[in-house]
């Protein structure tokens, strides 16, 4: 049984924009899959279709034997619980503490009444503290997220994702709003989760250097189609121009 099997996935937005035009993709457990492609090529849409933050128009997504696209609301929440996600803009609640933000990652496992005063739940707080420690922010637990730097905020977001004990982490350009050095450190945390915890990661990126450093496989999207699939080292200047257009030239960071 495949870990993820996407077949003939289409997404047409209201207004007629076709973001995905028949994606076929299989992902094995334990992969660190990098999505490349220009802005608007469909990377974000593909990632959000996987946990149905965006409903797809046609096609099927099987995640661990369960169909995502037609799952009932209850089953969908069960699937989403297994899938962590981190975002370009971190998507944390800025006027809450880092600790509360991390705890909110566990909501899928909690009943409504138990989610009312999570700070009273010793076990839950310990679990959140442990995850904050994993991303090196145990000192920042009480701080409001607004007062943290961009890199620290993204690490809080990773800790929030870890609360879900996820099988899969989707990362939508997790380092695009960070400076190069911070970007590499955030990617290092993701790489570590992939190696040590065996969490499968699908991560969209803009920088080829990071893709080569961390990715086990690269998928390139262009206009809603997959135009390349292979190992990161196979991307030479010609391939690069196929993905990014004739005038593109690779710039190196880190």
């Amino acid at each position: 049984m495949e870990f993820i099997k996407i077949s003939n996935l289409h997404k047409t937005y209201p207004g007629g924009i076709k973001a995905l035009k028949g994606i076929d993709l299989e992902v094995k457990q334990g992969e660190f899959l990098i999505l490349l492609g220009l802005s608007g090529s469909g990377k974000s849409t593909l990632l959000r279709c996987l946990n149905r933050l965006i409903p797809s128009t046609q096609g099927s997504i099987i995640f661990q034997g369960k169909e995502v696209t037609t799952a009932s609301q209850v089953n969908l929440r069960g699937i989403r619980r297994q899938i962590g996600m981190i975002y370009q803009q971190f998507n944390l609640v800025k006027n809450l503490s880092a600790l509360t933000n991390v705890i909110s990652g566990y909501l899928g496992y909690l009943s409504l009444s138990k989610s009312l005063y999570p700070l009273l739940d010793k076990e839950l707080v310990n679990k959140a503290q442990k995850n904050l420690k994993r991303v090196g922010l145990e000192q920042m637990a009480e701080k409001k997220v607004r007062n943290l730097s961009g890199g620290q905020q993204q690490r809080v977001a990773i800790a929030r994702t870890l609360m879900q004990d996820p099988q899969l982490i989707l990362a939508d350009e997790p380092v695009a709003s960070l400076d190069p050095a911070t970007a590499d450190s955030v990617m290092r945390y993701l790489g570590e989760l992939n190696r040590n915890d065996g969490i499968t990661i699908i991560c969209s990126l803009h920088f080829l250097s990071l893709a080569r450093k961390y990715g086990s496989r690269v998928i390139a999207l262009k206009d809603g189609n997959i135009v390349f699939s292979g190992s990161p080292s196979e991307i030479d200047p010609n391939r690069f121009r196929e993905i990014y257009g004739e005038d593109a030239e690779e710039v190196d960071i880190v």
């Binding site: 946990n51 929440r77 989403r80 971190f90 998507n91 944390l92 909110s104 566990y106």
Partner: peptide, 11 residues
């Protein structure tokens, strides 16, 4: 953003 993120956790 946070609404999207919390939705994504299965809440």
């Amino acid at each position: 953003g946070p609404v999207e993120a919390i939705t994504g956790t299965g809440a």
